[in-house]
Design a protein around this nucleic acid. Structure first.
Lengths: 169, 169
DNA sequence: ATGAATGCAAACTATTTGCATATAA
DNA sequence: TTATATGCAAATAGTTTGCATTCAT
């Protein structure tokens, strides 16, 4: 449920070559962490590439089922963070209710920097980005209602911790 | 749970005057729709303003409980979409797993325009926004991992439908 | 008076977890 | 061989809904 029409403006590459490279990257990623490239993970990775568009965890299970293959939903959920860490998929902002809410009445619009490590949220506003967003909306014939920009990364403090960590032998 | 540190860079106004104006706006909004400004809705609105920061549905119930007042979680969930429609709160992109996922390996980064009416998703890329985001991250000492921009609004098709609708007597 | 809103509890959906078994290296 | 991963089913969390009752107008 909650299926959405997807209109891809950019051409999607066929994923054939990408799949092969991604498989290598994922394997290396796993090995580096002392983890294993298993049947289930292989199937899930393949499905991610066959799906080519936005998808949810259960889509993987359904798609595999329709091909007579199967992987448990638990394994899908356990694999998703690995694929994210390996840089193969990302999470997109979602329209679900369990989003965080924020009062905006009487407030100037602002966007967010979120530290992926300590979860600190920093609010910012950049007028050039604001302007540019208006332009993009216009270009696509959109009447903009609102826009949300999130930059995720490591804040100053957590970068240092990270560097320390990777310096460990 | 899943509490996050909030660092507000912008000064938040005290919400006192905003609360009063918001109350009027919310009331008008409800009346226009033939809905009622009830005790529960008043309490929820007041809590939204006392919370001043990002919050989740259950925070409202808890905060009220700690003051000896109460509203059911069901009413909170039923009121949230009204507050959103009235322009008093917004949903922020969330970090929860039930986000939509997207393969990005071998893909150029892109952002999304989403039609709030027909849910159509249009992907776009704007280099000026990309550059500017890098700059913002730098300014705040962030090491950017990724960024997501969503512009929500009415696509060309749905604007027309909307206009027609508001023309009805 | 009466249509709309509430609270409660049950239902649903998405996600996570414990554990016995299977499997990659 | 053995630590890691899997599938299952049970548990948890977040959200929605039906219904009898209460409330706003």
């Amino acid at each position: 449920m909650n299926k959405q029409n997807i209109v891809a403006i950019d051409n999607h590459s066929q994923y054939g070559g990408d799949m092969i490279r991604a498989e290598k990257i994922f394997k290396d990623f796993l090995v580096t962490r002392g983890l294993r490239y298993t049947q289930a993970r292989r199937k899930i990775l393949k499905e991610v590439f066959s799906l080519q568009n936005h998808f949810e965890a259960d889509d993987i299970v359904q798609k595999l089922r329709s091909k007579g293959e199967k992987v448990s939903i638990a394994s899908v959920y356990r694999t998703i963070p690995l694929l994210i860490d390996a840089g193969i998929i990302i999470k997109n902002p979602c329209e679900h209710m369990n989003a965080r809410l924020e009062p905006v009445f009487g407030q100037q619009h602002h966007d967010h920097l979120i530290c992926v490590k300590c979860k600190k949220i920093i609010e910012f506003r950049d007028n050039k980005i604001e302007q540019r967003q208006k332009k993009v909306a216009q270009q696509h014939g959109f009447e903009m209602e609102e826009h949300r920009l999130v930059i995720r990364g490591y804040c100053g403090d957590c970068q240092q911790l990270n560097e320390n960590k990777s310096e460990q032998p």
